[in-house]
Computed example of a mutant assay.
Amino acid sequence: MKFALKSILVASLTLASAHALSQDLNSALTKAVSAAERSDNSARDEYRHPIETLNFFGFEPSMTVVEIAPGGGWYTEILAPALKGKGTYYAAHFPADSSVGYYQRSLAGFKKKIAGDARFSEVKLTEFAPSTHLDIAPAGSADMVLTFRNVHNWYMGKDKEGALSAFKSFYKALKPGGTLGVVEHRLPEQRSDEDQKSSGYVKQSYVIDIAKQAGFELVASSDINANSLDTADHPKGVWTLPPSLRLGEKDAAKYKAIGESDRMTLKFKKPL
C-alpha cells in the first residue's frame, strides 16, 4: 500500500511539474508576443503564427537558442524577452566585415534596435554567412537553431553549396538531440528546380534533402504557416506578395487578398 501511494505521489508531482513547465512556456511566449512594444510588428502574426510555430519546434524559455539572420529583429522581439533570465539567445547576424551594403545597413539597424532596450540586454550577437562565417555559437552548446525564410537566399547566392554549408554550421552548434526549426517559402514539387534560382521559393523535398546531407533527421512537418491561396507563381516571385508588394499599386488588392507566402514548417533533430 505504501509503495502504491508513493507511486501515485511521484506521478502526481511529475504531472504537476509538467503542467508548471507548460504554463511557464505559454506565459513567456504569450507575454513576449503581446508586448506593447511589438505593436508595429504584430500585424504579421496572422501569417507567421509565432506562438504556434515555436510550440511546434518545442521551444522552452530555459533553452539556448540561435536565430539565423534575424534581419530587423521580428522574431528577436519574441525570442529575446521569452528567454531572458532563464535561457540564452544568440542572434547570428550578417558579418561585420561584409562588403555588401545591404548587409551593413541591416546589421547597423539591428545593433541600434537592441542597444539600450532592456528586452534585449542579454542578446549575444554572433555572425553568420554561408561558407565563410559559420561559428554561430560555441560547438555543441545550442538546444535549438531557428531559421525563418532564409534558405532561398543561400540557394540563390551559392546554390547547393551555400545551403549545405549553412546546415552543417547549425549541426555543429547544436547539442546531440538538439532541434533545428525551419520555416521557408514553399515551391510546389511539380515545378522545375530552375524556379528555385530566382523566385524566392524552394521545394520542401530540397530542404529535407539538404538537412539530411548535413546529418539531421526529420522529426515532423506542419502546415501552421501554409497558405493554399498562394500559387508560388508571381511576376516578381515571392516578393510580389505582402509585405513587399514589389509591383507597387499594380494588382495590390489581388496580392493582399492572397496574403503572405505558402510556407513549409519543418522540425529536424541532431541525432544523439
Results as ranks from 00 to 15, higher is better:
residue 256 K to V: 10
residue 89 Y to N: 07
residue 139 A to S: 15
residue 121 S to T: 05
residue 179 T to A: 13
residue 107 L to I: 12
residue 201 Y to S: 00
residue 54 L to Q: 03
residue 191 R to Q: 11
residue 99 S to V: 10
residue 98 S to I: 06
residue 207 V to N: 01
residue 99 S to F: 05
residue 242 P to L: 06
residue 121 S to F: 02
residue 172 K to G: 12
residue 262 D to G: 10
residue 82 A to R: 01
residue 22 S to F: 12
residue 27 S to K: 04
residue 263 R to F: 03
residue 33 V to C: 09
residue 231 T to Q: 02
residue 25 L to T: 12
residue 151 V to P: 05
residue 146 L to V: 11
residue 157 G to S: 10
residue 67 E to C: 05
residue 196 Q to E: 04
residue 68 I to G: 12
residue 134 L to G: 12
residue 37 E to W: 13
residue 212 K to S: 06
residue 37 E to F: 11
residue 153 N to R: 06
residue 82 A to M: 01
residue 71 G to K: 03
residue 211 A to N: 05
residue 164 L to G: 07
residue 18 A to Y: 03
residue 96 A to Q: 14
residue 178 G to I: 07
residue 135 D to S: 15
residue 52 E to V: 14
residue 240 T to W: 09
residue 131 S to I: 11
residue 196 Q to N: 00
residue 207 V to I: 11
residue 128 F to K: 04
residue 152 H to T: 07
residue 49 H to T: 05
residue 199 S to M: 00
residue 53 T to P: 07
residue 209 D to W: 07
residue 89 Y to G: 04
residue 262 D to V: 09
residue 211 A to S: 10
residue 268 F to H: 02
residue 88 T to N: 03
residue 147 T to R: 02
residue 73 G to L: 04
residue 21 L to G: 13
residue 101 G to L: 15
residue 46 E to Y: 13
residue 122 E to H: 00
residue 144 M to T: 13
residue 186 R to K: 10
residue 235 P to V: 09
residue 161 E to Q: 15
residue 60 E to Y: 08
residue 87 G to L: 06
residue 168 K to E: 10
residue 253 A to G: 04
residue 62 S to T: 15
residue 191 R to H: 12
